[in-house]
Structure formats: C-alpha cells, structure tokens
Simulated assay, not measured.
Amino acid sequence: MRSGFALAAAIVFLAGTPASAAPVVARAQAGPVSDRVIGALSHRLFPLLDAIGTDPGGVAQLKAKPGVAAMLATRAERRAACTDDLGCIAQALVWTQSETAVLAAAVPEGTSSADDGSAAQARREIEGINTVLRTYGLGQLPRYPQIDGAGPIDPMEVRTRLQAADWLSRTPRARSIQALDTSMDFALALLDVSDRTDAIGFDPLMAGLNAAPVKRARSLDWTRWRYSAMIVTGVGPETPDAALSPLGKYHIRLAAERYARGDIAVIIVTGGRAHPRATRFTEAEQMRSALIDRYGVPADAIVVEPYARHTTTNLRNATRLLVALGAPLDKDAVIVCNPGQSETIASAAFAQRNVAELGYAPGQVGRRVSPTELEFRPSPLSLRVDPRDPLDP
C-alpha cells in the first residue's frame, strides 16, 4: 500500500503533467444497459408490457392514446408526494381500478396473443404488478404464505429491499417501459432482491433435461397411443432436505407400473421447488431421477415440468408442455396420483378452485378409471400467462 506521502506526490506529479501528455480516450454516448435476468423475468411475467417496452416508439404511442397522459401524470404526482418514504412509494405505485381501465383500453388489440384479447391480458399484468408490490413491498400475505412470498425477514432488510427496488426502477434499463411508468420495474426489482426469480429458474424449459424427450416427440405418431401423456402430480415434502416426499415415492411406483402397459406416449412429471419453503430440491427433477434410476424408465420418455407449485398449476403447466411437444389437445391424457389427491381432482370443489385461482379450468377432468387414475382433456386456455402468481405465471 502506498504511504500518504507517496500518494500525495503521485497526485502532484499527475496534476503537473501537461495535457498533451495525457492519453485521449474517445467517449461514446452510453445508453441504458440490458439486464439479462430482469429482461427475462419481464418477458416471462409481463409479455404484453414487455413487448411495448421493446418496440421502438411503443411507449410514445401508448402515451398518445386518450386519457393515458393525464392518468400517468396523476400517478407521477402521487409518487412524488411521497418524497423519500419508501412504504408510501410502494403504495403509490399500486394501480387503481380506474388507472388500470384507462391503460387496458389504450393497449392496441393484437399486442398480445392471449385468447381473450390484449385488454384482458393488460389487466392481468397490471394486477400482477399490484400483487408483487403488495406482497414483496407492503407485506401483504400471499394466497399460500407457507411457500410463497418473501417469508419472515428483518424490518431493516425490508427497507433495504424497498430502497434498492426504488433506485433500480429509476435507473435506466434497455427495452423497458420505465418511460411510461416505473411500477413494473419496481415490481421486477422487488422479486430480484427478494431472490424470488422462480419464474425463470429453468429456462429454456425445452432444453437440458427435456432436450431428449422433445427430440423424440417430433417423431411420434400421436394417433398410435391411447393417451397423449401421463401427468404425474407432485406431493411436496414438508421435511427440510427431503428430496422426495413419501407420497411422491408412491406416485413414482404408480407411474412406472402404468407406463409399463405401453399405451402412453410420454410421462410428464410436474412439481416445482416449493415444499418446504426455500428447499433446494425440485420435485419434478427428483421424480424423473427416481423413474430412471429405480424403475429403468427411458429418459427420453420423461418430460420435466419444474414450475408448478399447486395441483391447479400441475394440470395447467402440463397442458402447456403438451402444446410445446406438439401433442394434440383433442386427445386425453391420464392423471396418476394417490387416491386422496385423485378424489380431490375429481371433485366439484377442485373445479371451483381452478376458476377462483386461474380464472378457468385448465382442462376437463373425465372419468375416474381407477382410484389412482383420472382421464384429462387439456384446454388451450392454459396458455394464458398470469403474473398474479409471479413465481409461476
């Protein structure tokens, strides 16, 4: 380390160096930088708003729509009135129903591929922003507090996360809608600083462990099979460091036995990194390993769905994978699980839960072939992206 005298001498020497002797560095005007993590999360959670941000002129066009500029000005004033009060800022960024209606009406049709149109998708994405702000910024409990949300954290850490999210949301990011409103980037930053970027944890999903079954699926004649897929649902463990729950092991035995009959095209194992909170194990990966190692099921017959955190999304996400594999949706799949879960899936209460949590049925649950098997006809409605569940939209 230099002494204070040596450092001072060096400063004096440099100060006395003629300008002509100093190197000349040409500086280009720097633009906003890209953030690969936030960019991927933005595209996954908020595809419509993300598309507007990545379209040159998209923000300006939206601002020019009737009522939008005035609505945004009101939001900006509400945010400015908070000065440095971080809780107030997070609350000020929450969209009201009237503000949501104005923006949703201004989004051009065709901006989203959602089956119910761009306005409906815009409303879902704005509600998703509100969900993240309330859950990760304002401490509101999520629907499933045992596994979702930030969990119990120190109040000083809460403040630190809010401060970082505020600064990040106002630091330019390439291909964002910050020029329209900072709430989306504030929400994305909250997820990032809370280490809850679960929604992109396994992208690209059709590569890696799924590369071999995807390749095999391209050559399948789906008409040859009784069922397009066997959907093996998860039962997450509640014991720390448990890789697979006791009932999960039972599901795998059932799946291996059912696959051996030879009338199912692919196996979809579905279950995310949810139980218990902050587990390092992904249930679908553990089920895949058990099927291969314990029962000799071919790896290219098993598709991993590693995001689902609930039985509702087990079925929804399995449907999305069937679409990605090119499987026909007018062909039945079969759900394999323990008798208790099977009875639940067949119940009217489960149908109501799908409508309450997803807004639709991810498919039609058919006849119960046995206590551990139900037929299932997948629905294309499952393709809707819904960031109101920001860990698995």
Rank of each mutant, 00 (worst) to 15 (best):
S3W: 00
A6V: 07
A8Y: 01
A8C: 06
A9M: 13
A10M: 12
A10V: 10
I11G: 10
L14C: 09
A15S: 14
G16H: 04
T17K: 12
P18I: 00
P23E: 07
P23W: 07
A26T: 13
R27M: 13
R27A: 15
S34W: 13
H43R: 15
I52Y: 00
G53K: 03
G53S: 01
K63T: 01
K65P: 05
L72C: 08
R75L: 01
E77F: 05
C82N: 02
D85G: 06
Q91K: 04
Q97K: 12
E99Q: 11
P108K: 02
T111L: 11
S112A: 14
I126G: 00
T131I: 01
L133T: 15
R134N: 02
T135V: 11
G137W: 14
G137R: 12
P142M: 09
Q146F: 07
I147V: 15
S176K: 04
I177T: 09
A179N: 09
R196W: 06
G201N: 14
A212T: 05
P213F: 12
R218I: 05
W222P: 04
S228M: 06
G236M: 10
G236C: 05
L254T: 08
A256H: 01
E257W: 07
V266E: 06
V266C: 10
I268C: 06
L291Y: 01
I292F: 02
R294P: 04
R294V: 00
P298D: 05
Y307T: 14
A318F: 01
T319Q: 00
R320D: 04
K331W: 09
V336Y: 01
C337I: 14
G340L: 13
S347I: 08
F350Y: 15
A356V: 10
G363Q: 10
G366V: 13
S370G: 00
P378H: 04
P380T: 14
L383P: 03
L383W: 01
R384E: 11
D389S: 12
D392R: 12
